[in-house]
């Protein structure tokens, strides 16, 4: 159950980060509805943010595994 809460917290934080960053990048002048170009931008921005998250994860975990013995992190 600890593990499930961790996964949920992690997904929630990723959604929040995508929301903050992609709203800032894609909705520069908020109007009375999301128009289709804003939605297209949000979809791309979301995909790029998740790409970035994956690259960063890989780089960080690789580095940790290079420097820290496995049993310490449980990875």
């Amino acid at each position: 159950q600890v593990r499930a809460e961790l996964a949920l917290a992690n997904a929630q934080e990723l959604i929040n980060k995508i929301g903050d960053n992609c709203f800032t990048k894609c909705i520069t002048k908020p109007s009375t509805k999301l128009d289709s170009s804003e939605e297209t931008c949000l979809a791309k921005c979301m995909d790029r943010y998740m790409d970035a998250w994956n690259i960063v994860s890989r780089a960080y975990v690789t580095r940790i595994q290079r420097e820290v013995p496995n049993e310490m992190t449980g990875l």
Partner: peptide, 13 residues
């Protein structure tokens, strides 16, 4: 609009 569209953005995501 900023509040409304931010909420729309979260829902869209």
């Amino acid at each position: 609009n900023c509040v409304e569209r931010f909420l729309d953005t979260s829902i869209y995501i």
